[in-house]
Protein backbone atom coordinates (compact mmCIF):
# COMPACT_ATOMS: atom_id res chain seq x y z
CA UNK A 1 0.00 0.00 0.00
CA UNK A 2 2.75 2.33 1.04
CA UNK A 3 4.65 1.44 -2.14
CA UNK A 4 1.51 2.21 -4.22
CA UNK A 5 1.04 5.53 -2.48
CA UNK A 6 4.58 6.52 -3.07
CA UNK A 7 4.15 5.81 -6.78
CA UNK A 8 1.08 8.06 -6.91
CA UNK A 9 2.89 10.65 -4.95
CA UNK A 10 5.75 10.47 -7.35
CA UNK A 11 3.36 10.92 -10.27
CA UNK A 12 1.78 13.91 -8.63
CA UNK A 13 5.16 15.34 -7.87
CA UNK A 14 6.18 14.92 -11.53
CA UNK A 15 2.96 16.64 -12.61
CA UNK A 16 3.59 19.46 -10.21
CA UNK A 17 7.11 19.78 -11.44
CA UNK A 18 5.80 19.97 -15.00
CA UNK A 19 3.32 22.64 -14.01
CA UNK A 20 5.88 24.63 -12.20
CA UNK A 21 8.40 24.59 -15.06
CA UNK A 22 9.55 28.18 -15.51
CA UNK A 23 9.47 27.99 -19.35
CA UNK A 24 5.86 26.88 -19.49
CA UNK A 25 4.78 29.59 -17.10
CA UNK A 26 6.48 32.22 -19.14
CA UNK A 27 4.91 30.81 -22.29
CA UNK A 28 1.46 30.83 -20.73
CA UNK A 29 1.96 34.38 -19.51
CA UNK A 30 3.08 35.38 -22.98
CA UNK A 31 -0.04 33.86 -24.54
CA UNK A 32 -2.28 35.61 -22.01
CA UNK A 33 -0.51 38.85 -22.70
CA UNK A 34 -0.87 38.31 -26.41
CA UNK A 35 -4.56 37.59 -26.00
CA UNK A 36 -4.95 40.79 -24.01
CA UNK A 37 -3.40 42.88 -26.74
CA UNK A 38 -5.16 40.98 -29.55
CA UNK A 39 -8.01 43.52 -29.80
CA UNK A 40 -5.44 46.28 -30.11
CA UNK A 41 -3.44 44.34 -32.72
CA UNK A 42 -6.59 43.65 -34.73
CA UNK A 43 -7.64 47.28 -34.38
CA UNK A 44 -4.22 48.53 -35.43
CA UNK A 45 -4.11 46.19 -38.40
CA UNK A 46 -7.63 47.02 -39.52
CA UNK A 47 -7.74 50.72 -38.78
CA UNK A 48 -4.11 51.74 -39.09
CA UNK A 49 -2.05 49.36 -41.22
CA UNK A 50 -4.78 48.50 -43.70
CA UNK A 51 -5.87 52.11 -44.35
CA UNK A 52 -2.23 53.18 -44.59
CA UNK A 53 -1.39 50.53 -47.16
CA UNK A 54 -4.66 51.10 -49.01
CA UNK A 55 -4.22 54.85 -49.15
CA UNK A 56 -0.67 54.44 -50.46
CA UNK A 57 -2.01 52.07 -53.10
CA UNK A 58 -4.69 54.62 -53.96
CA UNK A 59 -2.04 57.33 -54.23
CA UNK A 60 -0.30 55.35 -56.98
CA UNK A 61 -3.50 54.86 -58.97
CA UNK A 62 -6.13 56.77 -60.82
CA UNK A 63 -9.42 55.50 -59.40
CA UNK A 64 -12.93 55.40 -60.78
CA UNK A 65 -15.65 54.63 -58.27
CA UNK A 66 -18.16 52.81 -60.39
CA UNK A 67 -21.34 51.08 -59.20
CA UNK A 68 -19.75 47.79 -60.28
CA UNK A 69 -16.63 48.27 -58.17
CA UNK A 70 -13.54 50.42 -58.06
CA UNK A 71 -11.42 50.63 -61.22
CA UNK A 72 -7.71 51.14 -60.67
CA UNK A 73 -5.32 52.49 -63.27
CA UNK A 74 -1.68 52.48 -62.15
CA UNK A 75 -0.12 55.90 -62.68
CA UNK A 76 2.98 55.63 -60.47
CA UNK A 77 3.95 58.93 -58.86
CA UNK A 78 1.85 61.00 -61.26
CA UNK A 79 -0.64 61.94 -58.54
CA UNK A 80 2.18 63.32 -56.37
CA UNK A 81 3.64 65.38 -59.21
CA UNK A 82 0.15 66.58 -60.16
CA UNK A 83 -0.49 67.75 -56.61
CA UNK A 84 2.78 69.66 -56.48
CA UNK A 85 3.05 70.98 -60.00
CA UNK A 86 -0.39 71.49 -61.43
CA UNK A 87 -2.34 72.53 -58.38
CA UNK A 88 -0.88 75.66 -56.81
CA UNK A 89 -3.45 75.69 -54.03
CA UNK A 90 -2.07 72.71 -52.12
CA UNK A 91 1.58 73.84 -51.81
CA UNK A 92 0.38 77.32 -50.87
CA UNK A 93 -1.96 76.05 -48.20
CA UNK A 94 0.71 73.68 -46.97
CA UNK A 95 3.13 76.58 -46.52
CA UNK A 96 0.45 78.56 -44.66
CA UNK A 97 -0.24 75.55 -42.47
CA UNK A 98 3.47 75.11 -41.55
CA UNK A 99 3.88 78.77 -40.60
CA UNK A 100 0.62 78.98 -38.63
CA UNK A 101 1.28 75.68 -36.82
CA UNK A 102 4.77 76.69 -35.79
CA UNK A 103 3.34 79.91 -34.37
CA UNK A 104 0.07 78.68 -32.89
CA UNK A 105 1.43 75.56 -31.12
CA UNK A 106 3.58 77.54 -28.63
CA UNK A 107 0.69 80.00 -28.12
CA UNK A 108 -1.72 77.18 -27.23
CA UNK A 109 0.75 75.33 -25.01
CA UNK A 110 1.89 78.45 -23.14
CA UNK A 111 -1.73 79.56 -22.67
CA UNK A 112 -2.67 76.10 -21.41
CA UNK A 113 0.26 76.15 -18.96
CA UNK A 114 -0.66 79.57 -17.59
CA UNK A 115 -4.30 78.61 -17.15
CA UNK A 116 -3.31 75.27 -15.56
CA UNK A 117 -1.05 77.04 -13.05
CA UNK A 118 -3.84 79.47 -12.22
CA UNK A 119 -6.39 76.69 -11.84
CA UNK A 120 -3.97 74.85 -9.56
CA UNK A 121 -4.07 77.71 -7.03
CA UNK A 122 -6.31 77.61 -4.02
CA UNK A 123 -9.17 79.69 -5.33
CA UNK A 124 -12.91 79.62 -4.76
CA UNK A 125 -14.96 77.91 -7.46
CA UNK A 126 -11.90 76.03 -8.78
CA UNK A 127 -14.09 73.28 -10.23
CA UNK A 128 -16.32 75.80 -12.00
CA UNK A 129 -13.36 77.51 -13.68
CA UNK A 130 -11.91 74.15 -14.72
CA UNK A 131 -15.26 73.31 -16.24
CA UNK A 132 -15.33 76.58 -18.18
CA UNK A 133 -11.94 75.94 -19.74
CA UNK A 134 -12.76 72.35 -20.62
CA UNK A 135 -16.25 73.08 -21.93
CA UNK A 136 -15.14 74.10 -25.46
CA UNK A 137 -13.65 70.63 -25.92
CA UNK A 138 -17.07 69.07 -25.42
CA UNK A 139 -19.34 71.67 -26.97
CA UNK A 140 -17.35 73.54 -29.57
CA UNK A 141 -16.36 70.78 -31.92
CA UNK A 142 -16.70 70.13 -35.63
CA UNK A 143 -19.62 71.87 -37.32
CA UNK A 144 -20.45 74.03 -34.28
CA UNK A 145 -16.97 75.51 -34.32
CA UNK A 146 -17.36 76.17 -38.05
CA UNK A 147 -20.66 77.95 -37.49
CA UNK A 148 -19.25 80.04 -34.65
CA UNK A 149 -16.30 81.04 -36.82
CA UNK A 150 -18.64 82.03 -39.63
CA UNK A 151 -20.44 84.32 -37.20
CA UNK A 152 -17.14 85.93 -36.28
CA UNK A 153 -16.94 84.38 -32.80
CA UNK A 154 -13.40 83.19 -33.51
CA UNK A 155 -11.79 86.58 -32.99
CA UNK A 156 -11.55 88.76 -29.90
CA UNK A 157 -13.80 91.72 -30.59
CA UNK A 158 -11.88 93.99 -28.21
CA UNK A 159 -8.77 93.58 -30.35
CA UNK A 160 -8.58 95.55 -33.55
CA UNK A 161 -7.52 92.61 -35.71
CA UNK A 162 -7.72 94.72 -38.85
CA UNK A 163 -5.10 97.12 -37.52
CA UNK A 164 -2.85 94.22 -36.48
CA UNK A 165 -3.27 92.57 -39.88
CA UNK A 166 -2.45 95.79 -41.71
CA UNK A 167 0.63 96.45 -39.64
CA UNK A 168 1.89 92.86 -40.02
CA UNK A 169 1.34 93.02 -43.76
CA UNK A 170 3.35 96.23 -43.85
CA UNK A 171 6.38 94.57 -42.28
CA UNK A 172 6.33 90.97 -43.51
CA UNK A 173 5.90 89.41 -46.95
CA UNK A 174 2.33 88.23 -47.58
CA UNK A 175 3.33 84.53 -47.46
CA UNK A 176 4.30 85.05 -43.81
CA UNK A 177 1.90 87.85 -42.95
CA UNK A 178 -1.27 85.99 -43.94
CA UNK A 179 -0.89 82.99 -41.61
CA UNK A 180 0.25 85.24 -38.76
CA UNK A 181 -2.70 87.57 -39.30
CA UNK A 182 -5.08 84.63 -39.36
CA UNK A 183 -3.84 83.65 -35.89
CA UNK A 184 -4.92 87.03 -34.53
CA UNK A 185 -8.19 86.81 -36.41
CA UNK A 186 -8.90 83.38 -34.88
CA UNK A 187 -7.44 83.94 -31.44
CA UNK A 188 -10.52 82.69 -29.58
CA UNK A 189 -10.60 79.50 -31.65
CA UNK A 190 -6.94 78.87 -30.91
CA UNK A 191 -7.51 79.33 -27.20
CA UNK A 192 -10.52 77.01 -27.35
CA UNK A 193 -8.16 74.32 -28.58
CA UNK A 194 -6.33 74.28 -25.22
CA UNK A 195 -8.86 72.41 -23.03
CA UNK A 196 -7.18 69.00 -23.06
CA UNK A 197 -3.71 70.51 -22.68
CA UNK A 198 -4.85 72.40 -19.57
CA UNK A 199 -6.07 69.11 -18.13
CA UNK A 200 -2.77 67.35 -18.83
CA UNK A 201 -0.75 70.17 -17.27
CA UNK A 202 -3.08 70.29 -14.30
CA UNK A 203 -2.69 66.59 -13.56
CA UNK A 204 1.08 66.88 -13.81
CA UNK A 205 1.11 69.94 -11.51
CA UNK A 206 -1.02 68.14 -8.94
CA UNK A 207 1.35 65.18 -8.88
CA UNK A 208 4.30 67.34 -7.96
CA UNK A 209 5.76 66.94 -4.50
CA UNK A 210 4.76 69.97 -2.40
CA UNK A 211 7.75 69.48 -0.10
CA UNK A 212 10.06 70.66 -2.89
CA UNK A 213 8.28 74.01 -2.96
CA UNK A 214 8.27 74.19 0.84
CA UNK A 215 11.99 73.50 0.91
CA UNK A 216 12.61 76.08 -1.78
CA UNK A 217 10.51 78.65 0.13
CA UNK A 218 12.48 77.96 3.33
CA UNK A 219 15.68 78.56 1.37
CA UNK A 220 14.23 81.90 0.28
CA UNK A 221 13.18 80.98 -3.25
CA UNK A 222 10.61 83.30 -4.84
CA UNK A 223 7.54 82.08 -6.76
CA UNK A 224 9.24 83.05 -10.01
CA UNK A 225 12.33 81.02 -9.13
CA UNK A 226 10.20 78.08 -8.00
CA UNK A 227 8.45 78.11 -11.36
CA UNK A 228 11.67 78.06 -13.40
CA UNK A 229 13.68 75.77 -11.15
CA UNK A 230 11.03 73.33 -9.92
CA UNK A 231 7.73 73.51 -11.82
CA UNK A 232 9.05 73.76 -15.36
CA UNK A 233 11.71 71.00 -15.14
CA UNK A 234 9.14 68.70 -13.56
CA UNK A 235 6.48 69.17 -16.21
CA UNK A 236 8.88 69.21 -19.14
CA UNK A 237 7.81 65.76 -20.41
CA UNK A 238 4.20 66.99 -20.37
CA UNK A 239 5.16 70.00 -22.46
CA UNK A 240 6.38 67.67 -25.21
CA UNK A 241 3.26 65.54 -24.85
CA UNK A 242 1.06 68.62 -25.18
CA UNK A 243 3.02 69.90 -28.15
CA UNK A 244 2.58 66.59 -30.00
CA UNK A 245 -1.10 66.50 -29.05
CA UNK A 246 -1.63 70.08 -30.24
CA UNK A 247 0.11 69.48 -33.57
CA UNK A 248 -1.94 66.36 -34.21
CA UNK A 249 -5.14 68.12 -33.16
CA UNK A 250 -4.52 71.17 -35.34
CA UNK A 251 -3.52 68.99 -38.27
CA UNK A 252 -6.60 66.78 -38.17
CA UNK A 253 -9.07 69.44 -37.19
CA UNK A 254 -12.09 70.03 -39.41
CA UNK A 255 -11.29 73.73 -39.46
CA UNK A 256 -7.99 72.98 -41.14
CA UNK A 257 -8.26 74.12 -44.75
CA UNK A 258 -5.95 71.35 -45.99
CA UNK A 259 -8.28 68.69 -44.59
CA UNK A 260 -11.12 70.41 -46.41
CA UNK A 261 -9.03 70.55 -49.60
CA UNK A 262 -8.23 66.83 -49.37
CA UNK A 263 -11.90 66.04 -48.76
CA UNK A 264 -13.01 68.17 -51.71
CA UNK A 265 -10.47 66.49 -53.98
CA UNK A 266 -11.53 63.07 -52.75
CA UNK A 267 -15.16 63.65 -53.69
CA UNK A 268 -14.47 65.69 -56.80
CA UNK A 269 -15.27 62.50 -58.66
CA UNK A 270 -13.43 63.60 -61.79
CA UNK A 271 -10.60 62.01 -63.71
CA UNK A 272 -8.11 64.65 -62.55
CA UNK A 273 -8.88 64.25 -58.87
CA UNK A 274 -10.69 61.64 -56.80
CA UNK A 275 -9.47 59.10 -54.25
CA UNK A 276 -5.99 58.65 -55.79
CA UNK A 277 -5.21 62.33 -55.98
CA UNK A 278 -6.58 62.95 -52.48
CA UNK A 279 -4.51 60.05 -51.09
CA UNK A 280 -1.35 61.51 -52.61
CA UNK A 281 -2.22 64.84 -50.98
CA UNK A 282 -2.86 63.11 -47.64
CA UNK A 283 0.49 61.30 -47.73
CA UNK A 284 2.42 64.45 -48.50
CA UNK A 285 0.56 66.30 -45.78
CA UNK A 286 1.26 63.50 -43.28
CA UNK A 287 4.98 63.71 -44.03
CA UNK A 288 4.96 67.43 -43.33
CA UNK A 289 3.09 66.86 -40.05
CA UNK A 290 5.63 64.20 -39.03
CA UNK A 291 8.50 66.57 -39.81
CA UNK A 292 6.92 69.26 -37.62
CA UNK A 293 6.44 66.75 -34.79
CA UNK A 294 10.09 65.66 -35.08
CA UNK A 295 11.22 69.27 -35.08
CA UNK A 296 9.38 70.04 -31.84
CA UNK A 297 10.40 66.70 -30.32
CA UNK A 298 14.07 67.46 -30.94
CA UNK A 299 13.66 70.88 -29.36
CA UNK A 300 11.75 69.72 -26.31
CA UNK A 301 13.03 66.19 -25.73
CA UNK A 302 13.84 65.90 -21.98
CA UNK A 303 17.58 66.06 -21.48
CA UNK A 304 19.15 64.38 -18.43
CA UNK A 305 20.04 66.95 -15.80
CA UNK A 306 23.52 67.70 -14.53
CA UNK A 307 23.06 66.02 -11.15
CA UNK A 308 21.98 62.74 -12.73
CA UNK A 309 24.93 62.91 -15.10
CA UNK A 310 27.37 63.43 -12.19
CA UNK A 311 25.85 60.58 -10.17
CA UNK A 312 26.20 58.28 -13.16
CA UNK A 313 29.81 59.39 -13.66
CA UNK A 314 30.60 58.79 -10.00
CA UNK A 315 28.99 55.34 -10.08
CA UNK A 316 31.05 54.47 -13.15
CA UNK A 317 34.25 55.63 -11.42
CA UNK A 318 33.34 53.68 -8.32
CA UNK A 319 32.80 50.49 -10.36
CA UNK A 320 36.12 51.05 -12.07
CA UNK A 321 37.84 51.43 -8.72
CA UNK A 322 36.22 48.22 -7.47
CA UNK A 323 37.40 46.36 -10.56
CA UNK A 324 40.92 47.66 -10.06
CA UNK A 325 40.84 46.70 -6.40
CA UNK A 326 39.75 43.18 -7.28
CA UNK A 327 42.51 43.01 -9.86
CA UNK A 328 45.05 44.06 -7.24
CA UNK A 329 43.67 41.51 -4.79
CA UNK A 330 43.91 38.73 -7.36
CA UNK A 331 47.41 39.80 -8.33
CA UNK A 332 48.59 39.90 -4.71
CA UNK A 333 47.00 36.46 -4.10
CA UNK A 334 48.84 35.10 -7.12
CA UNK A 335 52.09 36.67 -5.94
CA UNK A 336 51.60 35.26 -2.46
CA UNK A 337 51.09 31.78 -3.90
CA UNK A 338 54.18 32.18 -6.08
CA UNK A 339 56.21 33.32 -3.11
CA UNK A 340 54.91 30.41 -1.01
CA UNK A 341 55.90 27.89 -3.73
CA UNK A 342 59.33 29.50 -4.09
CA UNK A 343 59.78 29.26 -0.29
CA UNK A 344 59.02 25.49 -0.31
CA UNK A 345 61.48 24.92 -3.13
Amino acid sequence: MSEKMSKEEKKQARKNRKKMKAGRLAKREAITGLLFITPWIIGALMFLAYPLITSFRYALNNIRITPLGMNFEYVGYENFTQVLLSDAEFPMQLADYVVSTIISVPIIVVFALIIAIMLNQNIKGKGFFRLIFFLPVIIVSGPILGMLNEEGAGSITAIDTQAITTSIQGVLPSSLADPISSIFENMVTILWYSGVQILIFLSSLQKMDRSMFEAAKIDGGSGWECFWKITLPNIKPMILLNIVYTIVFISNNEQNTIIELIKTSMFAGTQEKGYGYASAMAWMYSLIVVVIVILFAVLFMAKKDVYEKQVKKAKKAHKKELRQLKKIERRSARNAKKNARAGRV
Partner: peptide, 18 residues
Protein backbone atom coordinates in the same frame (compact mmCIF):
# COMPACT_ATOMS: atom_id res chain seq x y z
CA UNK B 1 -25.15 51.74 -55.33
CA UNK B 2 -28.73 53.02 -55.71
CA UNK B 3 -30.70 51.99 -58.81
CA UNK B 4 -31.58 55.48 -59.94
CA UNK B 5 -29.70 58.68 -59.23
CA UNK B 6 -30.19 62.37 -59.78
CA UNK B 7 -27.10 64.42 -60.53
CA UNK B 8 -26.20 67.98 -61.28
CA UNK B 9 -22.50 67.40 -62.02
CA UNK B 10 -22.17 65.42 -65.23
CA UNK B 11 -18.40 64.95 -64.90
CA UNK B 12 -18.68 63.00 -61.64
CA UNK B 13 -21.41 60.77 -63.09
CA UNK B 14 -19.70 60.10 -66.41
CA UNK B 15 -16.10 59.73 -65.31
CA UNK B 16 -17.12 57.06 -62.81
CA UNK B 17 -19.61 55.20 -65.06
CA UNK B 18 -22.39 55.91 -62.58
Amino acid sequence: SPDIIMFSDADAALSNFW
